[in-house]
Simulated scan of single mutants.
Amino acid sequence: MSSDALIADQTDHPGEPVAVTAAGAIPWRAGKDGLEVLLIHRPRYDDWSWPKGKIDAGETVPECAVREVWEEIGLRAPLGIPLPPIHYHVASGLKVVHYWAVKVNGDSLVPDGKEVDSVMWCAPDKAARLLSNPSDVAPLESLRDAHERGELDTWPLLVLRHAKAKPRSSWSKAEGERPLAATGSRQAQAVGRLLQAWKPMRIVSSPWLRCVATVAPYARATGAKVKLAEGLTEHKHQRTPKKTAAVIESLVDKQRPVVVCTHRPALPTVLKQLATHMPSHLVQLLPAHEPFLSPGELVVCHLANSGKKRVVAVEQFKPFDD
């Protein structure tokens, strides 16, 4: 039996501290034979599972998932909808593994040969029978259910609050020129790494310096196109919040992956507009109280690729705080 074999039940473990945090993904594709998922074989344990691994120091959980998928099967792909995490016991205590769906668009897969010696595409029913860890079935069932509802194939719209800026009290020049604090500059670098988990190639930002500086490391690293929208500034939002909402609605209409960088005072309007595209149980996942998001924090809204402008999943993350 491998060291990470399931020895506990699959219910939550209230009050028990997590000893090991890991992340991974279920790669999927939809072809003429229907939905297929990718299993990996690990020679060290002689088992079938999903690509996953332990979180590294200085890493967020989404970053860990993307890295592990790349290292184990040679796939660079953005994360799709979140899937239920699983909990089980290992020698050091309780382990949690966070999972996402990852769409494979004809990409060639290259198992690393050491940790993964082979891969197998198969239907979900067959995968459920082959999985060595029974708890790995739960995220698979969630993925299959999302596919049946038309909510598996998605695109992300990310709402980002700019990183920490210099205090207003210490800034006497134009408000739009107030820069990031030293802490904010470090946050911007961390934001740049976190955004690569979804890798939107479009950025729509308030033209004020602290927003532009927050997305700059990501734009430089990826070549993502940056568009400045006056409707996302504090002043424009204060005068005409409808224009702020209109910026968000236009991005929903375009149905292309995008990150929106704006200011704390504009967040209630931005989130309220997005809430019009989601069911009540997802609205409840949106931040609802001041300050809504901390500096550098983001909300990920996954919208179905059905053309119906429908949010099907919501997540919230902070960049790694050093």
Score class of each variant (00 low, 15 high):
residue 146 A to H: 01
residue 150 G to D: 08
residue 253 D to N: 13
residue 295 P to R: 06
residue 223 G to M: 03
residue 240 T to M: 11
residue 251 L to I: 11
residue 152 L to T: 01
residue 269 T to M: 08
residue 220 R to F: 04
residue 150 G to H: 07
residue 142 S to G: 11
residue 56 D to R: 07
residue 247 V to N: 04
residue 153 D to T: 10
residue 17 P to S: 03
residue 79 L to Y: 14
residue 80 G to K: 00
residue 199 K to A: 08
residue 30 A to I: 08
residue 300 V to F: 01
residue 88 Y to C: 03
residue 145 D to P: 00
residue 289 H to K: 12
residue 155 W to H: 15
residue 42 R to D: 06
residue 318 K to F: 11
residue 22 A to D: 07
residue 54 K to F: 09
residue 294 S to A: 13
residue 237 H to E: 09
residue 183 T to E: 13
residue 100 W to H: 06
residue 154 T to K: 09
residue 146 A to F: 01
residue 59 E to W: 01
residue 209 L to G: 05
residue 165 A to T: 08
residue 31 G to P: 02
residue 45 Y to R: 14
residue 47 D to W: 05
residue 203 I to K: 01
residue 109 L to R: 04
residue 125 D to E: 15
residue 302 H to G: 02
residue 273 Q to P: 00
residue 3 S to P: 01
residue 141 E to I: 03
residue 134 P to L: 03
residue 99 Y to G: 04
residue 16 E to K: 10
residue 56 D to G: 09
residue 199 K to F: 05
residue 21 T to D: 12
residue 132 S to G: 13
residue 236 K to Q: 14
residue 132 S to F: 00
residue 104 V to Y: 06
residue 43 P to Q: 12
residue 234 E to P: 00
residue 62 P to Y: 09
residue 104 V to A: 05
residue 296 G to S: 13
residue 237 H to F: 07
residue 198 W to A: 02
residue 207 P to M: 13
residue 33 D to G: 12
residue 51 P to V: 12
residue 168 R to N: 11
residue 211 C to R: 05
residue 302 H to Q: 11
residue 283 V to Y: 06
residue 97 V to F: 01
residue 91 A to H: 10
residue 163 A to H: 03
residue 12 D to W: 09
residue 60 T to V: 00
residue 80 G to P: 02
residue 175 E to T: 15
residue 172 S to A: 14
residue 223 G to K: 01
residue 39 L to P: 02
residue 63 E to F: 07
residue 58 G to W: 14
residue 94 L to G: 10
residue 84 P to W: 01
residue 268 P to K: 08
residue 75 L to A: 11
residue 311 V to F: 11
residue 12 D to I: 14
residue 219 A to Q: 07
residue 103 K to F: 07
residue 190 A to Y: 00
residue 273 Q to H: 05
residue 147 H to M: 12
residue 157 L to R: 03
residue 5 A to T: 15
residue 207 P to D: 11
residue 257 P to N: 13
residue 200 P to A: 10
residue 6 L to Q: 15
residue 255 Q to S: 15
residue 64 C to P: 06
residue 257 P to A: 15
residue 81 I to A: 04
residue 234 E to S: 13
residue 235 H to R: 13
residue 53 G to W: 05
residue 101 A to Q: 06
residue 91 A to S: 15
residue 43 P to N: 12
residue 60 T to Q: 01
residue 320 F to H: 12
residue 78 P to K: 02
residue 194 L to Y: 04
residue 27 P to M: 08
residue 122 C to E: 08
residue 104 V to I: 10
residue 217 P to Q: 09
residue 19 A to R: 09
residue 118 S to V: 13
residue 164 K to A: 13
residue 123 A to E: 14
residue 293 L to N: 05
residue 27 P to W: 12
residue 213 A to H: 10
residue 82 P to E: 11
residue 177 E to T: 14
residue 282 L to C: 02
